[in-house]
Amino acid sequence: MRRHLDTASFRDGFVGMLPACVGLAPFGVVCGVGAAAAGADLAAAMGMSTIIFSGAAQILAAQLYAAGAPLAIIVLTCFVLGLRLLMYSAAMAPHLKPLSPAWQRTLAFLLTDQAFAAAIRRFNATDDPRDGASFFLGTGVALWAMWQATNLAGFLAGNLIPAAWSLDFAVPLCFIALIAPLMRNAPNVVAALVAGVAVLALAALPMRLNLVVAGIAGILAGTLAEIARERWKAR
């Protein structure tokens, strides 16, 4: 694996990801604070950031765990949230096909929203899969290292921040920063509206099932809205 590592491409990926790392640092801190608030110890908090390595899934898991939801519901809800990774995996697959299984397994572990966006651009711009893979590895390593450092900082600072600062509000704000830019696309607006209304309307469902049911309702609504829009345009 090492002999395929093109250090110039790796460096491009690593350095190119640094501005995004600065932007995502508060989200990492918020995830560390969230783990502390859910009652995780240091090992579990770092287990979440190193093994799950997905901010939204970490926050969701921590919140459902703190609310006493059963294991099966936590796993199901996080699984539905993680389904978007299938989309990234499918889009990345043709570019990673020429690489060895070791490369494929390593890069798959580092596949996140941000690494995907940066690496897919590089793969589309180059004919050399090794250049793209080394670049991808650089972005992934930069993100992973930043994520561990900021999660650790958040976990350690979590207990020191006064409750009057309402810092828990930073959690929904981080997600709003991810969702709001998607609202330029009408079916996404439909998906978000249906999910948002459904999660409140179904709040009486036991075991926090309202989250996953509302999420699936939103996904179906967005898909139907897209199909309806296509039919409308085709007329």
Binding site: I59, I179, V199, E226
Partner: peptide, 20 residues
């Protein structure tokens, strides 16, 4: 499936955020 997956972030993250 490819079509439906595009709406996972908007739907799931909104369901997560609104109650918060």
């Amino acid at each position: 499936l490819a079509r439906a997956l595009r709406y996972v972030p908007a739907a799931m993250l909104t369901a997560l955020v609104v109650p918060m």
